[in-house]
Computed example of a mutant assay.
Amino acid sequence: MPAREPFGQRGRFLAGVVLLTALLVLLWWTGAAAATPLEEAYPNEVEVTSNRDAYVGERVVLGGFVVETDPVVIATRASGYGRFTVVNADDSRLQSTAPLERGDDVTVFGTLADESTLEADRTVTDELRDTLYMFAVSFVGGCWVLVRLVRGWRIDRDRFALVPRTATPPTAGRRDGDTGSSLEAVAGSSERARSRPGRDRQRNGTGGDR
């Protein structure tokens, strides 16, 4: 007798719905959150650029693009206005150790040493190639997991569950065994029926030539 599942098909279906809903909510929450969590906790380029004196000595996060590389200078405005010299910009990069180049889109977190100097603790490069690399790696990893799932698992419709493809369905195993046993029983009965008359004639002394 197969072991009874604790929750059954309805329980698994309900758990799947709950997990799928949680996944969608988390995706929505992540998309609605700021690209850089520090932007919500520290003054950004909009506040600092227009009122630099008020933030000297404080920790800030500034987004902009590189306009000079020696030393590294970023501009927080598309017109090139709002320039800040970034100290330790290359050493504080998170994604790469390659030197920054002009036109690179960056987000720098650090301490505003004076009105035009930012001492960087972390520098994040928002380059297109980094974004494409992230999506490419995620896509390849997702395809690999999907192929492994399809090749190694199947859906058992009777139990509404994922089972290994090498596993034999319990019902099929029982049916084959029952059929084999029945055939063997019929064959044995036929053999006994064919051999019984000969044994009966020998027992009564009527068999054989006289």
Rank of each mutant, 00 (worst) to 15 (best):
M1S: 09
P2T: 14
P6D: 10
R10Q: 09
G11N: 05
R12Y: 15
F13E: 03
F13D: 13
L14W: 09
A15C: 14
A15Y: 13
L19I: 04
A22H: 05
A22C: 10
W28Q: 13
W29T: 11
T30D: 14
A33R: 00
T36I: 07
P37I: 07
L38H: 08
E39R: 09
E39T: 08
Y42P: 05
P43L: 14
E45R: 05
E45F: 03
V46K: 01
N51L: 06
D53Q: 11
D53F: 05
A54S: 05
Y55P: 01
V56C: 08
R59D: 09
V61H: 08
L62S: 01
G63S: 14
G64A: 02
V67W: 01
P71N: 05
V73L: 04
V73N: 00
A75C: 08
T76K: 03
R77V: 09
A78C: 04
R83M: 13
T85I: 06
T85K: 09
V86F: 11
V86D: 03
V86P: 03
V87C: 02
D91M: 12
R93Y: 03
L94I: 15
Q95E: 12
S96N: 15
P99A: 08
E101D: 03
G103I: 03
G103E: 12
T107P: 01
T107Q: 03
G110I: 02
T111P: 04
A113V: 14
A113K: 10
D114V: 05
E115V: 13
S116N: 14
L118N: 09
E119A: 10
D121K: 00
T123D: 05
E127H: 09
T131S: 04
A136P: 06
A136H: 11
S138L: 13
S138V: 04
F139C: 00
G141L: 05
V145T: 15
L146M: 03
V147F: 15
L149M: 15
G152H: 07
W153S: 09
W153N: 08
I155W: 00
D156Y: 05
D158E: 15
D158P: 13
D158Q: 12
R159H: 09
F160Y: 08
L162N: 13
V163A: 11
P164W: 10
R165L: 06
A167R: 13
A167T: 12
T168I: 15
P169K: 11
P169N: 11
P169A: 12
G173T: 02
G173Q: 12
D176P: 00
G177S: 14
D178R: 01
S182Q: 09
L183C: 04
A185M: 02
A187Q: 02
A187G: 00
G188Q: 03
G188D: 04
R194E: 04
R199F: 00
R201H: 12
R203F: 10
N204Y: 12
N204H: 15
G205Y: 11
T206L: 08
D209Y: 04
